[in-house]
Design a protein around this nucleic acid. Structure first.
Lengths: 346, 346
DNA sequence: GTGGCGATCCGAAACGTTTCGGTCGCTTCA
DNA sequence: TGAAGCGACCGAAACGTTTCGGATCGCCAC
């Protein structure tokens, strides 16, 4: 292994000067800098991060803690998250530790402690926050850097990256209301996660602004799978008396199931039911293949990874959390899957 | 942060002696050891891993290096691997770093070097070896511990966990030959990976032992997807003159496609064509849903993770690689998808 | 000639730990 | 009585880097 000392011996320079040359300090002549560069290549010098860490007090390692569940292996969102984050951190020469707790562990806080104190991790990415998330409180208390994908509440003090779930659902609901719909259903993720609350807030606000009374029977919550979309559509639409004339879907998988359910009941989109969805742009499921074309909002989840990595790196470096927050924009992509409600609908 | 120096000052001992007490060395009196223990709790001392690393040269961190490709997000085998390994290492208090190289990086060797020398990783898991794998040679040359999922050749000197692909394919082919089949096709993964060569070896050996001449036209290689299975079946079976009477499938996805292809051509299993497959027991695709029941060999890929983690931990500790090798057993699960070839077959 | 200044370089300390090679008393045994 | 052995302890070096506080030298202005 080549060290700075080897390099300095080989060049007839002091260790100090070689270090300064490598780190781009000012008081190094151009000639020396060039000589150092070539020597680095010649001797295949690779700086020892461990030593650098010892001096700086930081480890250059961040982590993601997750609890494995029975569905984890099929959770393509989680997989994309892991891949995306790993790629971003790798690019930044930050080591990314994936710590998977055994199923049923429950409390992640001791795990964070062990990794932070014993393992020298100096930052964490936190996924799927819920309102008043105890993990977040714990990390805040322990003073370690972290970044959240999502938010536990509307204006948190910590670094985060999120999409404006409230505005997105507001857009869907308001648009449908403007078309004349009065019974607008929402099929979204199961309760627990904070984002579902934001979404419902936006949904309700839009309805109320349009003078409509939100009907709890029109909100269906379940894990966002195609199967659950199908089931929800059939349950919602079976009774013509109480049937909604529009359905907002939490993501494209749900929308797929809802389309299938509508078709199975012999109904049409948008003749009988208008359908909209939010699109996270997961690679597993595309927005093509909907006929008629799906009206949707679009905010690629993949946009999150660079920001999350960047924010965490800067939080570790001690930057002000207030500068490390971002609510991503979303696009509205018009589609023929919405129309005014049918005449006969009440 | 409490350091050894703080502890030693607090106890009136030397740093040396405190360190020795904590690490269970022999020349420390029981009384001193007890005093140190209480002081550790009192001052909430947590050893600094970075410093320990610097002096010991070991980090307690292992890594997995992979190149991201366009298909990676849908590669459920890779995902299961990452999840399985992460879980196993987490249980062992070993940090597991996932390093994802950007698409098109090509040569992973500099990445290994950077992680090993610069980042202090002291072991790697290597996936998908090919014959004469340059990564393996590089890791061998650099003297770092590693374990391979699979093998680059039959009797390698390094730690590995593998299934006996040769014996598995031999079993399939021999069994079909014993039933009287003379034209036995193989639909397996694209070339490149070492395991496909082992599989073909077993396949050819069984054919030759049965007095049959392997026909290159009966071996179809492509990524193991349902679509490719379907295409392969149709290509193989379209010409009744050269049609095989049995098809061995590399995995269940391929078998699904092959079944679909056979059905599309108006043929039956096993009346016209016998079908067998190897089953890695991926959660994404089950062996149910085949009618008639698929004859198959079975070796759950999930059995690999504990062994890989164990072998790597022990390799890092300096254990003899010869003790860290295992070829997993497989089971034969009889199914009605095989039968003697049809009378009219030549 | 000297004082100052900028450019370039260097020695040494520091980070927190482990470990090598001791020292210091005390007992034991010839 | 002296050597040997042993238990308990310690100082200092080492790991590879960064950084603080100088040092050296040539050059210019006075």
């Amino acid at each position: 292994m080549t060290t700075l000392k080897d390099l300095s011996r080989h060049l007839g320079l002091s260790v100090t000067q070689v270090s300064r040359a490598l780190n781009g300090h000012s008081d190094v002549s151009a000639r020396t800098r060039a000589r150092v560069e070539t020597a680095v290549k010649e001797l295949n010098y690779i700086p020892n991060l461990t030593a650098r860490r010892l001096v700086s007090g930081r480890s250059g390692v961040v982590g993601l803690v997750a609890e494995a569940g029975p569905d984890t292996p099929e959770d393509s969102v989680f997989f994309e998250t892991v891949l995306g984050l790993s790629g971003e951190f790798s690019r930044r020469d930050i080591q990314f530790v994936l710590h998977l707790m055994p199923p049923g562990t429950g409390d992640a806080r001791p795990v964070y402690d062990r990794l932070r104190l014993g393992g020298g991790l100096d930052g964490f990415v936190l996924l799927g926050p819920c309102p008043g998330d105890p993990r977040i409180r714990h990390l805040e208390d322990s003073g370690v850097a972290f970044v959240v994908h999502g938010r536990s509440h509307a204006a948190p003090p910590y670094p985060f990256f999120d999409v404006d779930n409230c505005a997105i659902l507001h857009d869907h609901a308001a648009r449908l209301a403007a078309l004349g719909h009065t019974r607008i259903a929402l099929v979204d993720a199961g309760p627990g996660a904070a984002f579902t609350a934001f979404r419902e807030d936006g949904y309700r606000a839009a309805l109320e602004a349009a003078g409509l009374r939100p009907d709890p029977a029109l909100v269906v919550r379940a894990p966002m799978t195609e199967g659950n979309g199908l089931v929800a559509a059939i349950r919602l639409l079976s009774d013509p008396a109480t049937r909604p004339t529009a359905i907002i879907c939490g993501n494209l998988l749900v929308a797929k199931g809802v389309f299938a359910g509508i078709r199975a009941l012999g109904l049409t989109v948008p003749g009988d039911v208008s359908v909209t969805a939010h699109d996270d742009v997961l690679r597993a499921v595309g927005a093509d293949g909907f006929a008629p074309a799906l009206h949707r909002t679009r905010a690629p989840i993949a946009d999150s990874w660079p920001h999350l990595a960047d924010f965490l790196a800067r939080a570790v470096a001690g930057e002000d959390p207030a500068a490390l927050q971002r609510v991503a924009p979303f696009k509205v992509i018009e589609g023929a899957s919405i129309a005014p409600p049918p005449e006969n609908a009440h």
